[in-house]
Every structure is written in C-alpha cells, then in structure tokens.
Amino acid sequence: MVKRKVPKNQSESKTKWQHLLNIPNQPLPEMGLTPKIAVWKKNKSTLWFYPSAQKKYEVPVFLIYSLINTPLILDLSPGNSLIESFVNEGFDVYLLDFGSPGFEDGDISIEDYIVDYIQKGVQRALRHSGASEITVMGFCLGGTIAAIYAAIADEPIKNLILSVTPVDFSASEFFDQWQEALKEGTADFDETIDIYQTIPASAVKYGIRLITSPVYISPYLSLLNQADDEKYVQNWRRFNAWANGHVPLSGAAAKQITKDLLIKNSLVNGSFKVRGKKAKLSKIDASVLVIASKYDRLVPQEMIYPVMEHLTCKDKTYNLLKSGHAAKQYSGVLPYYLKEWLPGRSSPIQ
C-alpha cells in the first residue's frame, strides 16, 4: 500500500480550519478572574472592590464603565486586564458595574445614574477605603458621565481620567442626516421608547454596529489567520463575548443622551444640568488625563479633544494612542500613559 504524503501547506491549512470549526464546541474561557468583593449594591448595580496585592498608593481608583456594555473588557483574563494591572501596581480599585436595566428601570436618567449611583458609589468607596481622595476613571460614555459628575461633585476627586470619552457631540460625522432630522424634530422615537421602557440589548448592539461596521467579517478573518494559536483564540473569544454582550439602555437615559448631549450638545456649551445644578467642565478642579485613540471609529478624537479647551484646571494632559476604541492589550503592568501620569498623583505610601 502506498502512503500518500500530505503536503505541509495543505496540512497547515487543514489544521487552521479544523481549529476554527472546533471553536464553537469548546467552552467559553473564563473572564473577570481578578479577586473582587462586592461592597455595595443598589438595584442592578454593584460596587466591586479589587484589593491591591501590596498597597502602594493612598488614592484608590474608581472605574465607571459605559452604560451600554459590560465592564468585562477591563478584566478579560489574567495577563490581559487593566484592573489586574492597577492591582499589581499597588492601587486599590473600585468598579461600579451598572448591571442590566429592566423594564422597571426605564425612568433612570443620566442624572439619576450620576447622583444615585455614581456619587453614592464614590462616597461608599471613600468610606470603605478610608482614603481622603479618589481617582475617577471613565470609559466611553462612562467617561462622559464621569466628567459630568466631576463637574458637580462635592467629593474630593483628585484625578479624573477620561478614556475614549465623547464630549463634543457636534463633531460626530456619522449619519449626519439622521442627526439633522433628530435635531429638527422630524424624527422622534420618544413615544416608542416609552412603550418599551428600555432600548433592548440587541438594538444597542446593532445600533453601534451600524456606526462602526455593519459588515463584520474582519474579526473572523483574523481568527482564521491565527486559529492554530491557542492563546490568540482564547483572547479572541473573550473579546468577542464582550463585544456581543451589550446591555439594555434605560429609556430615560437614551432620551437624555439624544436630547441633551446629541441635539443640544449641552456638555460643551455648559447647559447640562444635574438636578438643577449646572455641570460645567470649567468647574472640574481635579488633575485630568484625556485618552483618545487614533483609529477609533465610534468616538473619533474630534469628539474628545474639545474637552481640553473647556477644562480650566491647571493640570491637564491629552494622550493620543495608536489603537482602536476598545482593543487595548494589557500585560499585567500599567500601560505607559497611565504609568507615567497616575502614580505621582496618587499619594505614594512612604
């Protein structure tokens, strides 16, 4: 019997395809493994505490993630986790996870999130940590509400870090015709939102997909390209699970985002009010680090940079990274832009 030799190229190709087709049969790798304790719960929200391995800084870090996605991206896996990086560097970390709002939460507005959840959460974190000051770090829309909160806060916010945070909504280039129609009131979805009370997670997902990439094949081609690399596949699956894990958005918050932020651009023109209190960016007196990403299609830097013009605090830094909206890799240590900026402003323990 003659044994036919399989060409090497062919076998490699077969392996890639075999790996790719076998992926759905494998369990999803674990995520969010950095040790944590729940220190406060309110409605669907949880305030998580990640104790530092060896505390080196007095000022803890309080993380606020976006309202439309889960904060899992901040703790994807050991060795690829921002939270783990903070903890390894000696920072105590608090993360406010808003959870998944239901029908009964349809009336929670941005103002409510700021006063009833973020402000209370920061107070709890301060009390729990025994710290005299805190660093607040917001991501994407979480950064926008972190900036609004910082503008009205009574709490001692020492540092404010805004990561890929939209501030100037007039600079958004996508779907300008839709924006015009919304601004002029010829398109209005308020009554529809009132019926459903929340924007369903699937609608949020496809809405974001529409802005970024309606045809979504390149991630799968990347996976095929490296399907025989076990570590890459595991990381890809974790990221993919996060990228598809949107949460519903409460109706009141959706309306406030559309009316106050998108149509009136009220954060930039200083008219955004939180329970009667004007949230002016010029009132922020914390040290501010603004992070933007060059290849971010969802929040281009034109929507981010104007915050620098409206901040009047003396200590403000702008950092433009060569990355996309969310695909940042952390290797167990803080990325350089945080490592250079944050420790010196976090009261190192002598």
Partner: peptide, 8 residues
Amino acid sequence: GNSSIRNK
C-alpha cells in the same frame, strides 16, 4: 472601613 473624608 473608615471615614475617608475625615482622617487621612
């Protein structure tokens, strides 16, 4: 925990 706001 402890009052943050006061002692340290």
